[in-house]
Design a binder for these strands. Sequence first.
DNA 1: GTTTTGACGGCGG
DNA 2: TCCGCCGCCAAAA
Length: 109
Amino acid sequence: MGPDFFNNVYEVACLIPKGRVTTYGAIASYLGMKRSARMVGYAMNGCDIRSGIPAHRVVNRNGMLTGKHHFGSHDEMQRRLEKEGIQVKNDKIVNFEKHFWDPMLELKL
DNA sequence: GTTTTGACGGCGG
DNA sequence: TCCGCCGCCAAAA
């Protein structure tokens, strides 16, 4: 794990399996900053969409694509998710719980 | 320096 | 169930 929070966020994001998604809060919790979910979002804001970080797999706890405006076009995030087999309706992931990937549970450290 | 602003989430009414 | 307030904390203004 890198020394700074931002890099840790990026590392975890890259570990999200294709076709799965997680939340800002789950990542924050995994990094020991449970109450700083906003910082995770802020960190993702700093990441370049072209850097290869699958930021589209990170949504808020309701499974809503709140960060879609940070992608090239408004439907870019949704398109990427659907491309991985995740259905999105009204900016919300269908069967969110089913696709949810909890780093705390899968990585456990 | 201080103030505002979020890609959030928990809790109370 | 739905809605709104509040704590969180780093960056930008």
